[in-house]
Amino acid sequence: MDALLIESDTVFAAFWMTVRLTAVSALGSLVLGVLLTAMRVAPLASLRGAASVYVSVARNTPLTLVLLFTGLGVGANLGVELSDDIATNNYWLAVIGLTAYTSAFVCEALRSGLNTVPVGQAEAARSLGLGFVKTLGLITLPQAFRSVVAPLGSIMIALTKNTTIALVVGVSEASVRMREMIETYGDQVIEIFFGFAAGFVLLCLPMGLAFGWLSRRMAVAR
């Protein structure tokens, strides 16, 4: 236990990075996921096609590859600099990669949610004179969203754990700190391991409970 207590500051700092990565990527992937969903049901075939290709590629590529691509491809090779500070730069590259990857899953969840909304809802909206964007934004997507709160919760929990892969672009989140500590305190491997695992459980468990509660609260009665 000593190691975790002695290093508690750096451990918390590392978990704080995990939380920031998760929160910002979650927000990003929700926004991008909604946009992709709108594209997938848009009247324009080219938009539908583009979104569908994007989702297929992002969903079927390992996250490690996606992050290596943002790190090496976008960051190093194309020379995109998001900040002068290298740590900040890497952080944003990780956020981009995690967002690009997770948004495809958000899109799939929302699309399956859209399928649960009776077609009469959109017809009633259109017959009132609402256009495509408002019908989607005011009527069908909000209902779709409410029906997929639980699956979205699973996606967000997966995202939390997926942030550990940000180490491939050099972000020092919790799992990196764990590895460093295991190297320093070789005699306390088990304690360190359980300590960090407990940290992730403490993050994810309340998320699962919160999403379950939200899902019941927000369900649409028909």
Partner: peptide
């Protein structure tokens, strides 16, 4: 398109299954 939406606003529709916005 926009013009059709405007025209639809002038034509009310009542459905067999009501189709009230459930949320």
């Amino acid at each position: 398109g926009r013009q059709l939406a405007r025209l639809r606003a002038e034509v009310g529709m009542v459905f067999q299954s009501f189709n009230l916005f459930a949320h």
